[in-house]
Design a protein around this nucleic acid. Structure first.
Lengths: 347, 347
DNA sequence: GTGAAAGCGCTAACAC
DNA sequence: GTGTTAGCGCTTTCAC
C-alpha cells in the first residue's frame, strides 16, 4: 500500500539556475558560467555560486541545455541483439570510450533486422536526442540504400560490407579467416572444412569468402561450407554430420560457440580432439580457453573496435564534416589445444 | 581528405514545428496536436499536416519536448560491467521492455564500484536526462547509505541486499543455491563443496549463505568455501586444488564460468565427470549445454528480471509515488550430464 | 476543431 | 568579470 504522504508533488521541478542566482546574489549568466566551468569568473564569486548551488541542490537541466546548444552529449547505438558475445563486448567498449569523452550511450535494440525497424529506430534516435549514431550490423538482409541515413547526422557503421560514403569500423574478418585456415594448413591438413555463420551475416560471409580464397591460393578446391547460425546448437548438429563422415580432419568454425557445439558432437562420437580432428574458432570468448580441449581461435579486439568508433564519431561531431572511410582492426591467432597435425597422438 | 563542400552548415537545425505549420497553412499548435496523436484534429487537417511534415522532413525535437513536459522518455541504467553474462542478459531484457514502453535506455558504465563513482554516475544521470534509473549492483563494497539517491527520482535496484525503502528486483539467489545443493545431496553425496563468488558480490554472498544453510538443514557442517572471482581462471585454480585433495565428490560453483574452469582442471587431473566428481553451475549460459560434459546448472530468468524492473519503474514514473518492496524471480534446476550419484559409472 | 500567447531552463551575443 | 536580452522548439492554457 503506497503511502500517500510520500507521493512526489506533481509540479515539483528541480531548482533552476535562477534560484541559484537569487541565493548567490548574482545573475543567471554567472551561474551558467560557473556551471560550465568557464574561466572568466572571479574566484570569490565562483565559490559563492558553488555554495548556493549546493544549498538549493541545483542540477543542470539537460533538456534546456540541449535545446540551447543543439548538443546532447549522448551517442546512440542501434543493434539487433545484445546477446552475442561480440556485440556485448563492442557495446562495453563503446560505453567506456564514450564515458571518457563525457558522453552517455543510448541503446536501441531492434527485434528484427528489417528495413522498417532500422529506419524506425534510426528515426527515433535522430529526433535529435543524440549527437551521433553507431550502427552494429550483426546480421541483416537489407539493402543499405533503403535505410535513409540522414546526411546531417554523424554515423559510424560496424560492418565491413557497408557501401562507400559511410564511416566504417570493423574487425578484419578476412585476416582472421585467413589466419585460421593457414594455421590448419600449416599443421599439414590436406584441406579445411568450414562451419559458416548464417548467410544473412556479412561478417559470416566475409569469413567464409576468405576461408575459400585462402584454400584456393594453396591450390585446394574449397569443399562446400556447412551452414550454421552462430549457435552452439547449430555447431552440434553440423559436428554430428562431420563426425559421421569420418574423412574430415580440420574444421574452421566461424565463431567459438559453433566450435564448442561441434566439439561436443565430436566427443560424443568418440573422436579425439585434436588427435582425430582439429578445430579452430573465431572470437576468443572469455570461456574458450577453458573449453575441453582449450580452443584454438581467432581473437577479435572488440575494445579497439569500440574505441575507434567513438573516436571517429566524436571527430565527425566536432568538425561537423563526414569523413567516410574504412578502418579494419587486426585479429590474432591464439593457438591452444584443439589443433594438431593430422593423425597426431591423441594424448 | 575531407571534401569541404560536404561540411555540414554550422547553424543547420532540422525543420521545426513552425516550418510545418507554414507549409500546411495551420498553426503550430495544430502541428503539435498531430505530432502527439491527439484526437481533436479534423482528419483532413491531419492529412495536410502529415503531408507537410513529410515534405519538410520534420522530426520532433526531443530536447524541446522534454524541456516542456519534464519527461524524457528515457530510462538510465547504471552498471559496473557489461561483460558478465548476467548483466548483459539483464540489459538486453531491459532494453526490450523499455522499447515496448516506448522509452530508450541510457547506459552509464562505472569503472569501479566505489561510492564516488556511483554517486557521480547517478548525479550525471539525474540531471533530468532520464525519467528513472535502474542500478545493477553486480558487485560492490559500498555502504548504500553513502550513495545519495535523490528521493525525487524513481529508482529500481537489482540486488537483493539493498536496504528497505528501495524498489528491488532480483533473482531468487537463495532458491537457486538451495536447488543446486539439494540436487547433489539427493544424488547421495555426503556433502557439497562450494566455489563462491567474490565476497564483494551480494549475489555471491547470498548463494554461499543458502548453500551453507541447506547443508546445515541436512545435519551437515558446511566445509569452508573456496573463494573465486567469477572467472574461469579462478574456477580452474580452485578446481586444481579440489582435484589434488581427492576426497571431494560434489561441487556447487556460484556461476557457470567457474564451473567450466573447474571442469577443465578435473579433466587435466584425469578425474571423470560425473563419475569421480559431480558439479553444478549457476546461470545457465548459452554455452553450458555444450560444455563437456553438458553442465547441470541453475537457470536464471534474466528476461523476467529486466521486464519486472521496467514494469516497476514505469509504474513509479507514472504515479510519481515510490513503492518500495522486493520482487524475487524464481530459478530452475536444469539437470544435464555433469552430476550423478557418487561413484557412478563414468561412462 | 483551431489559434494566440506564454514560458519551460538554459546559453550566445552583446553591453558595460 | 558580470549583467541584460533574446530565443532555442515545444506544449499548456485559454480563447474562440
Amino acid at each position: 500500500m503506497p503511502d500517500a504522504s510520500r507521493a512526489r508533488p506533481e509540479t515539483r521541478r528541480g531548482p533552476s539556475i535562477a534560484d541559484v542566482a537569487k541565493v548567490a546574489g548574482v545573475s543567471a549568466q554567472t551561474v551558467s558560467r560557473v556551471s560550465n566551468e568557464k574561466t572568466n569568473v572571479d574566484p570569490a564569486t565562483r565559490d559563492r555560486v558553488l555554495a548556493a548551488m549546493h544549498t538549493v541542490g541545483y542540477k543542470p537541466n539537460r533538456a534546456a541545455r540541449a535545446l540551447r546548444t543543439g548538443r546532447f552529449r549522448s551517442i546512440g547505438v542501434i543493434t539487433f541483439t545484445l546477446s552475442t558475445f561480440g556485440n556485448m563486448r563492442t557495446l562495453d567498449a563503446i560505453t567506456t570510450a564514450a564515458a571518457d569523452a563525457d558522453h552517455t550511450v543510448t541503446v536501441i535494440r531492434i527485434p528484427d533486422p528489417t528495413t522498417g525497424n532500422v529506419s524506425g529506430a534510426y528515426r527515433r534516435l535522430s529526433e535529435q536526442a543524440v549527437d551521433g549514431v553507431i550502427i552494429i550490423f550483426e546480421a541483416h538482409l537489407l539493402d543499405r540504400a533503403e535505410i535513409s541515413l540522414p546526411a546531417d547526422q554523424p554515423v559510424v557503421i560496424i560492418d565491413s560490407n557497408a557501401g562507400d560514403g559511410f564511416t566504417i569500423v570493423d574487425t578484419d574478418q578476412a585476416q582472421g579467416a585467413r589466419q585460421a585456415t593457414e594455421h590448419l594448413l600449416g599443421l599439414g591438413h590436406r584441406t579445411v572444412w568450414h562451419i559458416a555463420g548464417p548467410d544473412t551475416s556479412f561478417s559470416g560471409l566475409h569469413r567464409a569468402r576468405a576461408w575459400a580464397a585462402t584454400l584456393r591460393e594453396h591450390g585446394i578446391t574449397p569443399p562446400p561450407a556447412f551452414q550454421g547460425d552462430w549457435t552452439t546448437d547449430s555447431g552440434y548438429r553440423i559436428g554430428t554430420e562431420i563426425a559421421a563422415r569420418g574423412d574430415i580432419t580440420a574444421v574452421f568454425a566461424a565463431n567459438d560457440q559453433m566450435a564448442l557445439g561441434a566439439m561436443q558432437a565430436f566427443h560424443e562420437a568418440g573422436l579425439a580432439i585434436p588427435g582425430d580432428i582439429s578445430i579452430v574458432g573465431f572470437d576468443d570468448m572469455e570461456e574458450s580457453k577453458a573449453f575441453w580441449p582449450p580452443l584454438t581461435t581467432i581473437r577479435q579486439d572488440f575494445a579497439e573496435v569500440g574505441r575507434l568508433c567513438i573516436e571517429k564519431l566524436m571527430h565527425e561531431i566536432e568538425t561537423k564534416t563526414p569523413e567516410p572511410g574504412r578502418s579494419f582492426v587486426p585479429t590474432t591467432l591464439v593457438v591452444r589445444k584443439s589443433t594438431a597435425p593430422p593423425g597426431a597422438d591423441a594424448s
